[in-house]
Design a protein around this nucleic acid. Structure first.
Lengths: 145, 145
DNA sequence: CGGTGTTGCGTGCGTTGCGCACGCATAAGG
DNA sequence: CCTTATGCGTGCGCAACGCACGCAACACCG
């Protein structure tokens, strides 16, 4: 049982990484966002405005890497650097309106692909799969790893 | 529905990548295998003895990269380079006995972690989750991407 | 109010892995 | 036999990463 899930997860990772899922999703979406910068963009959408250091923890990257990626996104007009009013050292990264739209669009794309492939599933199974996947994430072996 | 799955998948990828799952699994396992070389080792276990070029397609890497990684694994005694008896240009990569044991051990580790976290699930749900995950992979949007 | 340690940020530097392309050895075909 | 194609390893340039430095701004304290 564990083996079956492990095998499937391995395949999932392999395929997503190999195929550069991000690359497919970021195709024709604009100049600044690519498979490299996307995680920062997406992470920023999850966290809301925050510092590069916090975002680094979120996306599992060094602070400097986040900063550099953010610079690219900033140049593309998707991310804005704003001085923290409470601390003049700090810089808050935030999505611009265009950035928000972009990440929404990409999520829409991904969701559409998934929805499409779930369409042929019995309603109940699709629902239980979604629920179980979420549960596996929340309680499973990757909870805190 | 698609959104829920998309969200969960995003989290899954994020966590596995961030946490360097490979790193956790390859801990204390020997000298030559690390999170970089593991995919080659694992891919070789799937394909059986084959050329670096084939393996490259399997793991989604350039042939040269596979060759270099294989060299490391070879130095560690986990992979063996053998001349192809039918074609003296060709080189077949194959797992040594130690390599086979290593990949088996790592899979065991991963499966154990998953098994552990599935233990608290109702038997039927765990089974259906495993089945649906596999099905999602085989029929889903990552089928050929 | 000056001084000292701390925190947050950007960036230079060395390291690492990648893909591309070259050269060499062998196979295949006329 | 000579030409073309195939398979392999490796040098090279590029990109991204983490580390560590320097600078600016806070915080605490005598």
């Amino acid at each position: 049982m564990g083996h079956a899930v492990a095998e499937a997860l391995g395949d999932l990772l392999k395929r997503t990484l190999r195929a550069n899922l991000y690359q497919a999703l970021t195709e024709n979406i604009g100049e600044g966002v690519d498979e490299v910068t996307y995680p920062v963009l997406s992470g920023l959408a999850r966290t809301g405005p925050c510092s590069a250091a916090e975002l680094a923890g979120e996306v599992g990257l060094d602070r400097s890497g986040v900063s550099r990626r953010a610079s690219r996104l900033e140049a593309a007009g998707l991310v804005r650097r704003a001085p923290d009013p409470d601390d003049r050292r700090a810089v808050l990264l935030a999505l611009t309106e265009q950035g928000t739209e972009t990440v929404a669009l990409m999520r829409e794309r991904l969701a559409a692909r998934i929805e499409e492939s779930l369409r042929s599933w019995p309603e109940g199974e699709a629902r239980s799969f979604a629920r179980n996947l979420r549960r596996f994430l929340d309680e499973g072996p990757f909870k805190e790893v």
